[in-house]
């Protein structure tokens, strides 16, 4: 939002503006086409006809990080890939969000103990907004993760000054 971002006090007008901007953001999250491992197949299933991520406005999978808002890290990240993940994340425009999908992206998963090349969680290189558990998570779980992310976006302060205690705002299951 450039010049206007986080400049204003809370009042009726700025709250409404924020509400509008957040609503626009959360209803058109564009994820990046970024499949890593087994979880990517479930991510594809979410894009498929039965689960249909389009219902949540997040069905426009973009092939380039420059057009994407959301990176779903679907699968195991190892050290060789980790550098690329970081670079892709850096290329995404703000505001950007990350969902760590599956046990591997969350914390190494089944490869925690003996996987010498596996990064024990993608949060070691990029900040993660929502963790989705499972190996692989069911498509419903990913959809829930997406809804949690939308809740988080709903509380963001875009033109208002955030209170110190409110950063970062943690979503809760409400």
């Amino acid at each position: 939002m450039g010049a206007l971002s986080q400049k204003f006090e809370d009042n009726v007008l700025t709250t409404k503006v924020d509400w509008l901007l957040n609503w626009a953001r959360l209803s058109s999250i564009w994820p990046m086409t970024f499949g890593l491992a087994c979880c990517a197949i479930e991510m594809m299933a979410v894009g498929g006809p039965r689960f249909d991520i389009d219902r949540f406005g997040a069905g426009a999978f973009r092939a380039t990080p420059r057009q994407a808002d959301l990176m779903i890290v679907a699968g195991t990240v190892n050290f060789k890939m980790g550098e690329r993940v970081k670079r892709l994340y850096d290329q995404m425009p703000n505001p950007k969000y990350v969902i760590a999908m599956g046990a591997c992206a969350t914390g190494g998963g089944p490869y925690y103990k003996f996987g010498y090349t596996v990064m024990k969680g993608v949060d070691r290189i990029v900040p993660v907004d929502v963790y989705v558990a499972g190996c692989p998570p069911r498509p419903e779980a990913l959809l829930e993760g997406l809804m949690l992310l939308q809740q988080k976006i709903r509380r963001q302060k875009v033109v208002r000054v955030p209170k110190v205690a409110e950063i970062p705002s943690t979503p809760s299951i409400a």
Partner: peptide
């Protein structure tokens, strides 16, 4: 290759 090497044989 190797962007998804997960050490299955060592495991």
């Amino acid at each position: 290759l190797g962007y998804l090497h997960r050490c299955a044989e060592k495991i």
